[in-house]
């Protein structure tokens, strides 16, 4: 009973404390705070974002991610399909200029000229490959010349043969007057041998044929302006010694004509009438490190 009375006393006391506190606690926030908060409440409701903005905000991140993924996949696919070939890297302007200059050929003419040129170049490469390998030290000019020489690869030869086969298949059809046959043949419908990257063969072949046409019709630079490495491979020019140095001049006779001082052999020289082969003596090409140098290169001279 005493405990109950104590409890009741405590409860009454707590109520008194609450009442006393309620009477004492009368502070109010200042009016300017009220105004600021109510104004903020109204402003935020009025500036409620529209459905379009909410929609764009909601989809901004997923759309961005999707776009990045699509672009990345496209880029990777594109890079994988690019063929790292020298001819495909030629500027389109060069190709487009070179192709129309080639006169329209008949099927047989195209076949003969193209095959002859390609075989000649590939033979030159084969011979070059047989030479002992020296430590390469290629200046810029030399690189350029080698690039031009090595362009008709065996692969190119196969492509040219395919092209000719197709040209023959088109024999009943007359080629258009101002369309160069070599550059404009569409071989997509031609039955071909199995070969890697067939998907891109048409463009590759077109470019190579155009390059061949360009090489054939391009103006020949003067022999004097050629660097040593270019002069050595040139069939129209001859490299000779002069005043402890070298000069490149135009081939003066039938022996020097069509003889490459870099790849030409004694047999190639002596097959020409009244021609004599003189091997090089202590000649060092510019892109090779040699034991001795300064001597004359191999020559094919009348004799």
């Amino acid at each position: 009973m005493r405990l109950m009375n104590e409890h009741n006393d405590t409860t009454n006391s707590d109520d008194d404390i609450s009442k006393l506190y309620a009477q004492a606690s009368t502070e109010q926030p200042p009016l300017h705070i009220d105004d600021a908060i109510l104004a903020a409440a109204q402003t935020l409701i009025k500036d409620k974002p529209s459905a379009t903005i909410a929609f764009s905000r909601r989809w901004a991140v997923p759309v961005s991610i999707a776009a990045v993924i699509i672009m990345s996949v496209s880029l990777v696919t594109l890079i994988q399909h690019e063929i790292p070939e020298e001819l495909t890297s030629l500027p389109e302007s060069v190709l487009s200029q070179a192709a129309p200059k080639k006169p329209a050929l008949t099927n047989s003419e195209a076949k003969e000229s193209l095959l002859a040129r390609m075989r000649e170049d590939s033979a030159a490469i084969a011979l070059k490959d047989k030479q002992p390998i020296a430590l390469a030290r290629k200046p810029a000019a030399s690189k350029r010349s080698e690039k031009i020489v090595s362009s008709p690869s065996p692969k190119t030869l196969v492509a040219a043969e395919e092209e000719i086969a197709f040209t023959e298949s088109l024999a009943p059809l007359e080629p258009q007057a101002d369309t160069p046959q070599v550059a404009s043949v569409d071989i997509s419908a031609t039955p071909r041998k199995e070969k890697p990257k067939r998907k891109f063969a048409p463009r590759q072949m077109e470019n190579k044929a155009a390059m061949a046409a360009f090489m054939a019709t391009a103006p020949t630079p003067s022999c004097e302006s050629l660097p040593i490495s270019d002069c050595l491979v040139s069939l129209q020019c001859t490299l000779t010694t002069k005043d402890k140095g070298y000069i490149c001049r135009k081939a003066r006779n039938h022996c020097e004509q069509d003889f490459s001082q870099k790849t030409g052999t004694a047999e190639q020289c002596t097959t020409k009438p009244n021609c004599q082969f003189i091997p090089g003596k202590c000649f060092c090409p510019p892109d090779v490190i040699c034991v001795c140098g300064g001597g004359p290169p191999r020559m094919c001279v009348p004799g």
Partner: peptide
């Protein structure tokens, strides 16, 4: 208020502003 009724907010604010202020005070 979330639906745009500012009067609803005014009522809430009026009812609770003093108590909250005193809580911080």
């Amino acid at each position: 208020y979330a639906k745009g009724d500012t009067e609803a907010f005014n009522a809430l604010y009026t009812r609770n502003k003093a108590a909250l202020y005193r809580y911080f005070l």
